[in-house]
Amino acid sequence: MVVEKEGTVQINGATLYTKSWLPSDGAPKAILLFIHGFSDHINRYCTFFPVLAERGIAVHGFDQRGWGRSVRTPADRGQTGGTDQVLADMAAFITPYLPSGPSDPPVFVMGHSMGGGQVLTLASRPEYRDGLVKRVRGWLLESPFIGFSPEEEPSWLKVLAGRLAGMLFPGFQLRHPIAPANLSRDEAVRKSIADDPLMHNTGTLKGLAGLLDRTAALASGQAKPLPGAMQSLWIGHGTEDKTTCFKATRRYFEECLGEVKDKEFKAYEGWYHQLHADGPDSENFFKDVGDWILERCGGGGGGGGGGEETTGEENGKGKGADTSEEAAAKKTASKL
């Protein structure tokens, strides 16, 4: 059984919707704080989080400013503010859960898609290094937004026009639809996305400019974890992701994480963008995430140790994957 709790939290002048999925049989083994993606909301992950809670991992999430149930009127849609506002909101949500003593459960932070890019950006900022980043036991990224997929890459003219307009009308709302067919291989999931009134696909010129700036900084290697700050990192990405770029994520893992000793990259062969909702195989993703977290809590996992790369050769199921140093070196040399 899993206990679900809804609520709100006051963060930097905004009332934001929150939801938690809690183990029903006592204190959690770990706490996972989740940051959702563009046009998404925390209840879209409702098949993923209960599985983690059943394994003793308490999950807490919030609908970010401008998204989901944190939107009260149409004028609120996409009103995220710039990057400083986005990161400040995340930090304000995360900080109360951070452990204050050795008996507190370890805290993990996970971001999906846009949220994955936000998580990496937060970990690269000096102002959050000691008070936040170093106190998080591990970081997880699901299909992080480090680069556009070919299907979603905007033209340079559209980007330039948007930036110029954003200087004059930062709060102007602009729809940026993402085709449900590009998000999941599961037809039922695609339909639920198309029918979800909370997925409004609307950003502001200021918010979208901030999103592009964060992505460009990550793709260029300018934004990367600070030395000695990030303890552990797990990244999962589908090789057929049609929304964010698998190759850009792989390149970031190979070139920008030299300071992170405990790290793992999991390639899900043939999977799309929403690893948590990509059909029956998603149960393997649930297990991979749960195993990785619990291994860093002193037990409960079933996979390999940290500091290695998992290739996902068995259709992303984690079976028979070559995690040897030689294989990892070959993949690094290939520089996808």
Rank of each mutant, 00 (worst) to 15 (best):
A328G: 11
G305M: 03
G306Y: 03
E314R: 10
K319I: 14
E295H: 13
G318E: 09
W292C: 01
G302A: 08
A333K: 10
G318D: 05
A321I: 02
T311V: 11
G299K: 01
I293A: 02
G318A: 11
W292Q: 05
A328K: 14
A321T: 11
K331A: 15
N315V: 09
A321W: 07
T332P: 02
G316R: 02
G303L: 13
E314W: 14
K330N: 10
C297W: 04
A321D: 14
A329N: 15
A327G: 06
T311Y: 06
G298I: 04
D291A: 06
K335A: 09
S334G: 08
A327R: 02
G303Y: 12
A328E: 15
G300C: 08
W292F: 07
T323N: 08
A327Y: 04
T310G: 14
E326S: 03
G302C: 07
G304P: 12
T311Q: 09
T332A: 12
R296D: 00
E309H: 13
S324C: 04
E309W: 12
E308I: 10
G307P: 13
T332L: 09
K335C: 04
G312P: 09
G290F: 10
E308M: 07
S324Y: 02
E295S: 11
T310A: 14
G316A: 09
L294K: 07
W292I: 00
G318Y: 01
G301P: 03
G302R: 03
E309A: 14
G316H: 04
I293Q: 03
G305W: 05
G307N: 12
T323Y: 00
K317N: 12
C297Y: 02
A327V: 00
L294Q: 00
W292L: 06
G298K: 06
T311H: 06
D291R: 02
E308P: 00
A329E: 15
A329L: 15
D291N: 08
C297N: 01
G301C: 01
G303V: 13
S334W: 10
G318S: 10
G290P: 13
G306K: 08
G307T: 11
G320C: 15
E325N: 07
D291H: 08
